[in-house]
């Protein structure tokens, strides 16, 4: 993929220069090659290929994700492993009481977000908190709390390498349509939609930043900027603030619908969480 001709109103803010990203690199983590390029699924209208955000990062940032010791996100997986076995709540249960080993949750991340038994669309954080409040009778964790980020990182890791594959039909369809509409809706004072950057201009530079497709297969992500793990909804919030819009709340129905649509745009890409980004 070459730096492409700039075609939208973003042009004034876009600069073709420095990015030392190696877009031809293969992501090999601990000997396993992850899928970072896949043919675009049929429901994604304006892309021919879907690309992991990893491809858009610099050599140094890319390298951090190829080794599970060098990846600073993994220490938070270690913390979640400790929590996994800790009894919490009135029911006297730990995660391990029902799920035994975390590996029993392999594949879960690929299907998130997912419609629950009551027909509501839930993100992984919602499922974790349902376990905590219903089964463990413990306090729910806040969306962006360290405990929640650690746990979603641990659960995501169990699916690492498996392709994203969310359901978008049946009871999920209306949520998916909602998310899709949001993706193409312009928000905020800068009057920009997700698509303006991540569909029309991926591969281009926005100031010194190399625009990716905005794929979410790597979440929760260890961002160098955050110096820690962050959720998908935190990134959405950041994007909305950048375009000077009033962001939706983390955990809101809006963000969860958008998450479903974005997850479906990444169908076929490997789960990478916890990935490393700039």
């Amino acid at each position: 993929m070459k730096i492409r001709t700039i075609t939208t109103a973003l042009a004034a803010a876009v600069l073709a220069s420095v990015a030392p990203a190696d877009e031809d690199a293969d992501l090999v983590v601990e000997g396993e090659t992850l899928i970072t390029r896949a043919p675009a699924p049929a429901h994604v209208e304006n892309l021919t290929e879907v690309l992991s955000g990893w491809l858009f990062r610099s050599d140094e940032t890319q390298a951090l994700q190829t080794d599970d010791f060098d990846n600073p996100g993994m220490i938070f997986v270690d913390q979640a492993l400790d929590t996994w076995d800790e009894v919490d709540g009135a029911a006297g249960k730990a995660c391990a009481s029902c799920h035994e080993d975390p590996s029993s949750l392999a594949g879960v991340r690929t299907t998130m977000p997912k419609v629950n038994e009551d027909g509501e669309l839930w993100a992984m954080e919602d499922y974790v908190n349902d376990c905590r409040t219903t089964r463990m009778e413990a306090e729910p964790w806040k969306w962006e709390s360290q405990d929640m980020l650690n746990m979603t990182a641990l659960v995501s890791l169990q699916s690492r390498g498996m392709p994203m594959n969310v359901a978008i039909d049946g009871p999920a369809q209306s949520y998916w349509e909602q998310g899709k509409e949001m993706y193409y809706t312009r928000y905020g004072q800068l009057d920009m939609a997700c698509a303006n950057c991540h569909e029309d201009n991926y591969g281009n530079m926005i100031r010194a930043d190399h625009l990716s497709q905005g794929q979410i297969n790597g979440f929760p992500v260890y961002r160098l900027k955050w110096a820690g793990l962050g959720s998908i909804h935190r990134r959405f919030k950041g994007c909305m603030e950048n375009i000077r819009a009033e962001p939706f709340k983390r955990g809101s129905d809006e963000f969860t619908a958008l998450e479903l649509y974005l997850a479906s745009r990444g169908e076929g890409l490997s789960v990478e969480g916890p990935s490393v980004r700039n």
Binding site: F69, M74, I75, D78, Q79, D82, Q146
Partner: peptide, 9 residues
């Protein structure tokens, strides 16, 4: 609280 070391040897 919550500080966790990790070492590879």
């Amino acid at each position: 609280e919550g500080v966790k070391p990790r070492v590879k040897v």
